[in-house]
Amino acid sequence: MSIETAKTLNKLNFKLNLSRKTKQFLSTFSGLVVLLVIFSMTNPNFGTTNNFLNVAVQTAPIVLIAIGQTYVLITGGIDLSIGSNIALSGVLAAMLMKANVPVPICILSGLISGCLVGAVNGSLVVYGKLPPFIVTLGTMTAVRGITLTITQGIPISGLPDSFNQIGTGSTFGIPNPIYIMLLCVIVFGVLLAKTKTGRYTYSLGSNFDAARLSGVNIQKSLIKVYMISGFVAAVAGLIMAARIISAPPTAGDGYELDAVAASVIGGASTMGGEGTIAGTLVGAFVIGVLRNGLNLTGVSPFIQKIVIGVVIIAAVFFDRIKRKD
């Protein structure tokens, strides 16, 4: 290639490239803004502070699990065990509370259970050399079974008030789950964008072999990613239990797919190598706002599913078209 054409080509690519992540974020974000404007104009109950806080609280668990799913998707994997993990952490913490174990220890146990399931997932992928889809499909089923077994299928309710505060209480007028969500967004957003852990996560999904031959500790990095996913799922599980003051063993059923949807709308690729936490945050809110807005407008939940399904495909489709040019 001539130096001239190479330069032009590179300049052009550079323009598209430098801002690709930002551009994608902005386009998802503008989609969210459009939704907010449309619902605000069509429904007087939508644009209220109260409703916005309500949407945020409802969306918080999706944001949390989508953070984990984004990490896993970036490595080129998928975590299907998220929903079961939500139930396990909630149920485990709740059972310990019922046994009068101090609440902080119960919470810690719930979080550890999530990390452990993640560690099992990661280890099976790394050492067992099994596809992530199969591994997490297995743990999804098995963990759900464990949860149902230890509870005998009955929700654990009557949880102490100090715990319920996590889900139902407010600080400075803003519900607590929102703080927890923002804290996780910041911590895991920075971890992904600014640290070795994050860089290695991208390198695994971009080219596993090259990462290994560049000296990346692939075992440690992958297990860490699945543990992060397990951890945030557990956080989500605890918030959900605290909100309804009860831990049903069926909690979080199907949530793993919401997590995939939020990540993908936010720009993550199921092929690995791509995704950001900021994008995922917006992606989760696109889903949350759609549900809330359609609810308020009186659209049936059945039709809502159709709409969300179309949005997922459309988001990825438009991203693909943009990428072609």
């Binding site: 991208y202 390198s203 971009s206 080219n207 072999d209 090259a210 031959l213 190598g273 791509e274």
Partner: peptide, 9 residues
């Protein structure tokens, strides 16, 4: 391409 580079990075 296979072993040396993360081509999209």
């Amino acid at each position: 391409k296979k072993d040396g580079l993360c081509i999209n990075m």
